[in-house]
Computed example of a mutant assay.
Amino acid sequence: MHTNEMGVFGVSPAEEHLYRHFLRHPDSPSEGLHVKLGIASHELDQAMTRLIGLRLLRPGDRAGSFVPVDPEQVVARLTEMRLREMYQEIQTLTQSRHVLTTLRAETAAPANGRPAGAYDGEHGVEEIDERADLMNRVEELVFFAREEIASVEPGFHMITDEVVNRRRGVEWRALKRGVRRRLVVPADSLRYPRASGYVRELLARGGEVRVVEDISDQLVVYDGRVALMPKDPKNADEGALMVRGRGLVSTLSGLFEKIWEQAEDVSVELREPEEPAPELSEAELRVLRMMCAVGKDETGARDLGVSVRTYRRHIADVLRVLGASTRAQAALLARERGWV
């Protein structure tokens, strides 16, 4: 019997032994297997039930037979499940700091008046409740980052002008230092101009962005040593948890990598500005069409019944709206848009 290599995924020795048997003997019956494998009958039944529930086994073509699911799919699914379980465990642990308070309350104070058991030193997890404190801490972490900043941001569509400006100030400098920046956001968030504008600028400066259809996990990992995650995933206003140390942070880094693998690159179209098409007033459209039809400003102004000065002012407005530097360029852009 193999050692319990799949134990890291929460699979028991009996379950792994049974799964490996079906890998060697696909579409074989389960009847009498407890004798063949040396497993108690009730233990085999429990293992079969869990393997089917985990989708490691599925019914075969014959009655009572089973077929193993491809190992690559199995490992990928179990990895994702285990990472999410560990993510939830970390959140539960970090929300249990109140236990320290209750334990200290049970500790009698010594004669010198100092509380017994007052431990010094840095804890692995720190709670940050105030928004201003959180913003300052984020800027500090970005400033000292030297390798990578990796984040998953499900609420990216709600990014504010204040946050955008503060992030530009520190993240752009980090990119210049050679820090890798990876960002995962929901695809729908890019429908919002502020969010899509930030993404385009980040891409232009060498950042990497991927999108997913649906995501709930929110976290940021700095250099694989420090991570930030919300105290309450459903309410970002409740504050954040700062997790330190490679041991705890490695789990969160693994979750990010899993999400990154399953995400898709931002489409090429989003790398270009997506500003709404400019509009011209009726007067400007008439000037534009006249400009393309006649050669002299005096003629165009006379035909429109306006002064030459007003006519030229309208032309200047048309060039500005179209983003053209010359009249010829404006005419070409107007034809591309079907305006003339």
Rank of each mutant, 00 (worst) to 15 (best):
Arg191Tyr: 06
Ser250Cys: 00
Val212Trp: 02
Phe144Met: 15
Gln46Asp: 11
Arg309Glu: 10
Pro115Lys: 11
Asn165Cys: 05
Glu264Phe: 05
Pro233Gly: 02
His34Leu: 00
His98Lys: 10
Arg313Ile: 00
Ala47Arg: 08
Thr251Ile: 13
Phe256Asp: 04
Val306Ala: 04
Pro230Arg: 11
Thr94Ser: 12
Thr326Pro: 02
Glu269Trp: 06
Leu285Lys: 15
Leu304Ser: 10
Trp260Pro: 05
Arg84Leu: 14
Tyr19Arg: 13
Val308Glu: 12
Ile315Asp: 01
Ile215Gly: 02
Glu16Trp: 08
Glu148His: 09
Asp217Val: 06
Tyr87Cys: 00
Tyr198Glu: 03
His314Trp: 07
Val185Met: 02
Val164Lys: 11
Glu148Met: 04
Gly53Asp: 07
Gly113Cys: 01
Ser12Gly: 15
Arg210Leu: 00
Gly60Tyr: 08
Gly53Phe: 01
Met81Thr: 09
Glu208Lys: 07
Glu208Asn: 05
Asp133Cys: 03
Ala283Val: 12
Gly60Arg: 11
Leu141Trp: 14
Met86Ser: 02
Ser151Gly: 07
Ser307Asp: 14
Gly121Ile: 09
Asn112Val: 02
Arg137Tyr: 11
Trp260His: 02
Ala330Met: 00
Leu100Ile: 03
Val243Cys: 08
Phe156Ser: 06
Phe144Glu: 14
Ala277His: 11
Val199Leu: 04
Thr326Cys: 06
Lys231Met: 02
Val99Asp: 06
Gly247His: 13
Tyr222Gln: 07
